[in-house]
């Protein structure tokens, strides 16, 4: 306790008192001037020490900020380039389809054009326009304050946030209610597109989405709404709104557009007519080359991933 007492009671260096006593004994004033060279030099040194310590120990924000801003510019430039390339892909895809239609006409297979058109629609290869529903989902207001659009925390769970499972259920409900084409935030859902998550971000077809989530579903707006609302997905959605304050707005419209899926590519192709000199058994409908297409997978030669098989990640109306 002596140590503590000394520390608390007499924090001043005993040297000051002793020096003062010595000076009094020598007949000098107790205190020296504060303006001696020693004091001034030490004062300058002290200031220098403070400044240097503050400068060198403060985390350098400049280096990190420079790297971050450079990354942001690079990301933005690449995103812009990606958008341009996507537009180019869409334009070239349209050109290819036009050439295909022309070649088909010239070779006398004009009756296949309608089949191909319908298959392209089902494979989400072409943009579509028509009446439909717009369903806007957004996080609960309480969670929005701390997160800008596209700036979600990488960890943790907040119940007011829209999750990928919510989107999956809602999208499945819309397919079930008779939607013919669906896009989320301008990304067309093809039969092979998946709604997934990475951390807290929602990934649709390998592209991350930022809130709010706008689901556009083409189809008969009134009929879809009537079927959707009492369905499981509709009840689920209203429960999300009631319990977790997730905001959702369902609105019908006469003129909506969904883009084509630019990632569509050829995966399976089979000759539609009988192979020359071959007696291999194949689907009779295909072999005869009739104008009524079979609805079995692999029977299309539209050059799209599509086929008309049921989607892998979404349940389609049977």
């Amino acid at each position: 306790m002596t140590l503590l007492t000394t520390m608390m009671e007499r924090p001043l260096d005993a040297g000051y008192q002793e020096a003062a006593d010595r000076r009094v004994a020598a007949g000098l004033p107790r205190a020296t001037s504060t303006r001696t060279v020693l004091v001034v030099v030490l004062a300058i040194l002290t200031g220098f020490l403070f400044a240097v310590a503050a400068q060198s120990l403060r985390p350098k924000p400049t280096a990190a900020a420079a790297v971050k801003s450079e990354l942001v510019t690079r990301i933005e430039a690449l995103q812009e380039r990606g958008v341009q390339q996507e537009a180019k892909v869409a334009a070239l895809g349209k050109q290819v389809r036009d050439y295909e239609a022309l070649a088909l006409q010239q070779s006398g297979g004009g009756d296949l054009t309608n089949t191909i058109k319908s298959l392209e629609v089902q494979a989400a290869a072409v943009p579509l326009k028509g009446p439909g529903l717009t369903l806007t989902l957004d996080d609960a207001a309480s969670t929005v304050a701390d997160a800008d659009a596209g700036n979600r925390p990488s960890g943790g769970f907040e119940e007011g946030r829209v999750t990928s499972a919510d989107l999956q259920i809602v999208v499945n409900g819309l397919w079930g209610a008779g939607a013919e084409a669906i896009s989320i935030n301008g990304h067309r859902l093809s039969s092979t597109a998946a709604i997934r998550f990475a951390g807290q971000a929602i990934i649709v077809d390998f592209r991350p989405l930022a809130r709010p989530y706008v689901i556009t579903a083409l189809g008969d707006a009134q009929a879809m709404q009537q079927l959707f609302e009492p369905s499981f997905a509709g009840v689920y959605l209203s429960q999300l709104t009631d319990e977790f304050k997730i905001r959702s707005i369902l609105a019908g419209s006469d003129s909506l557009t969904v883009p084509g899926d630019s990632a569509a590519r050829l995966e399976v192709a089979e000759p539609i007519g009988p192979p020359v000199g071959s007696s291999a058994p194949s689907l009779p409908g295909v072999q005869q080359g009739t104008s009524t297409p079979t609805r079995s997978p692999g029977s299309s030669n539209t050059g799209n991933t599509g086929s008309t098989a049921p989607p892998t990640s979404q349940e389609r109306p049977s």
Binding site: L12, D13, Y16, A19, A20, A31, V39
Partner: peptide, 22 residues
Amino acid sequence: VFGAIRAILDGIFNDKVFVVSF
């Protein structure tokens, strides 16, 4: 530095003690 300020106010400041203690 605070010790020196206190010594000044106590009237017993000494520049050599200050420098050495610093």
